[in-house]
Design a protein around this nucleic acid. Structure first.
Lengths: 208, 208
DNA sequence: GAGGGATGTTAATGCTCACTAACAACAGTG
DNA sequence: CACTGTTGTTAGTGAGCATTAACATCCCTC
């Protein structure tokens, strides 16, 4: 039915297996937006970062806003999808919580740029992209809230949601403490702290 | 030696007791920078927010950058000064930690705008302002680290520092969970979570 | 080897915005 | 009431920047 290739049917030199440039631009965008903010990065900066000039970007994306949109939707999508999978595959709420913590920590240690951009740049999105990202974020939060509901039945949903946001703040702090600890030490520390914080939400922690 | 008034020797109508306009501009700057980011706010926005036009701002500040500088230095200064006082007035490390937590929570609930701007806009500062802010922030962090050192003698300084940054992330999450809980409920929740997180830093929490 | 699509390049274009100029109002002081 | 300093106002001015136009390449297909 078709030639079996993606939208751009190139090969041979191995330079463009499919959308390599596109992916490179998205990566550079995440990195630069994290470092200098959306408004602090110009089209020319982005082009230069991937070895072309600025306007070449318009061959791959309709504009700067769309670029940011794609980056943010991608992060939110990966986080929420991962959360759903982890919870589904866990044995019980305790297991699920640890899996969520480990998953989020892995993400924040591997991709601090994406974490940084994640809710710093919501305001620069199209109305449509913004609501997409918000919906995905809400879904991810509710995944955590669902697990916490089983572990802290005495807490109201509003308190659980606030707890989850607070835990995200804790877990996402890695961009602020770069390099002091090894990756494994940092992961272990965040796991202990995050776990303790989330389970400390109830005024009376012991059994009902 | 002088007329006994500030730099602007006005009164009578009661409109400008001293630098009222100046203070209003700083407040508007904090609010608008928090909402839309430094680059997303124009001089005209700032003027309009305080009932004048944009260029009037230059009668009070040398430029937009100086405005941001003053806001950030002010926050950092208040936080670190407060931290020093609280620790000095505490009975022991346990007391001091609780005082630091309560103080920081109060600040973040009372001035979410300042918290939001605090480390989001460091990159837009003059080199000089940036290093001033960094020095103040470091002092504040070290205040916390000093207290934690007594409570968790088994932890290395790097781990303590990372713990403190993580706790700040947790405590500063309030802008993300607005209005769901009452102020007092939120304060209590953050105190429990922050305390648990900071004391959970050691692999083995018990004595020796 | 001509046609065509994908991808780049350089040169506009037009808007936004920080900052400056030139001028006005006004209060307190001699 | 002239004098002066403070604070505003309305028009520039010039730089930066996203986007578009017009024009090259290159590769693949026929």
């Amino acid at each position: 039915m078709d030639a079996g290739q993606g939208p751009a049917g190139h090969r041979q030199t191995g330079q463009r297996p499919t959308g390599e440039r596109r992916t490179a631009i998205l990566g550079a965008a995440a990195r630069l937006f994290a470092a200098r903010g959306y408004r602090g990065v110009t089209i020319d900066d982005l082009g230069r970062a991937v070895g072309t000039t600025g306007p070449a970007l318009y061959r791959h994306f309709p504009g700067k806003e769309a670029l940011l949109g794609e980056v943010l939707v991608d992060i939110s999508d990966r986080l929420s999808r991962r959360g759903r999978e982890l919870v589904a595959g866990a044995g019980g709420p305790r297991d699920a919580l640890e899996a969520l913590l480990r998953g989020h920590i892995e993400f924040s240690l591997d991709e601090p740029d994406l974490i940084t951009v994640h809710d710093r740049e919501l305001g620069n999105l199209t109305e449509e992209d913004r609501s997409r990202v918000r919906r995905l974020q809400r879904g991810y939060v509710e995944e955590w809230v669902g697990v916490l509901t089983e572990l802290r039945p005495a807490s109201r949903p509003a308190a659980l949601r606030a707890s989850v946001h607070a835990a995200f703040g804790l877990l996402n702090s890695t961009p602020h403490s770069r390099g002091a600890l090894s990756r494994d030490e940092m992961a272990a520390l965040l796991l202990r702290m995050g776990s303790a914080a989330l389970l400390a939400g109830d005024p009376v922690p012991g059994p009902g």
